[in-house]
């Protein structure tokens, strides 16, 4: 028996198809979570398949519970999943986030995340009705900071952070009106 997430959107951009997670995404996701590429978002080489399994079930289960969630980014040319990104709102988040991760090192440096986020931000504003969005970024994650700036986000000093840790940077995305202008 197969249980799939039903009535979920598929978004396409020039080079990407974005869809909900599937079982076949687990191995590439696991390779990512168990690598040091994840050091800024709670993963790392000290993490194992067990941790990756729980993280994968988390991003998958977020969909039916919230009615929205993280998309898997599939490279149209190869059919391979290269990352995940999109609307994210775990229980302890102060507000709606747009997140992004590129899983495979070979997929980095191609502006996939930028391409995805332009479409995903539009999805959050137009389809989900969000009126604002933030991205939470580790202060040492220079690549993600650069992407946030490229997306027009502004650093906010006073916005609440997940867990109130005060360590995470909060980048506020341009509003729906500003994006449309």
């Amino acid at each position: 028996m197969t249980v799939t997430l039903s009535n979920t959107p598929v978004l396409t951009t020039e080079r990407l198809t974005m869809r909900v997670p599937e079982m076949a995404d687990f191995e590439p996701f696991c390779a990512f979570v168990c690598s040091d590429r994840v050091r800024y978002i709670g993963g790392g080489a000290d993490k194992d398949r067990l941790h990756a399994w729980r993280a994968f079930a988390h991003i998958t289960g977020h969909w039916p519970l919230r009615g929205f969630g993280t998309f898997v980014l599939v490279d149209k040319s190869s059919g391979a999943p290269v990352g995940s990104a999109g609307p994210w709102f775990p229980e302890c988040w102060p507000e709606h986030e747009l997140g992004w991760t590129i899983w495979a090192p070979e997929a980095e440096g191609k502006s996939f995340a930028h391409e995805a986020l332009i479409a995903l931000r539009r999805h959050a504003y137009a389809d989900l009705g969000w009126t604002t969005a933030v991205s939470y970024i580790d202060p040492e994650n220079a690549r993600s900071i650069a992407l946030a700036e490229r997306l027009g986000c502004r650093l906010e000093q006073t916005a609440p952070t997940p867990f109130g840790d005060g360590q995470t940077l909060v980048y506020r995305h341009p509003s729906p009106a500003e994006v449309a202008a």
Partner: peptide, 11 residues
């Protein structure tokens, strides 16, 4: 863990 209850059905 709550998300994983739903997520395991899919995986």
């Amino acid at each position: 863990q709550f998300c994983a209850i739903a997520g395991q059905w899919v995986v």
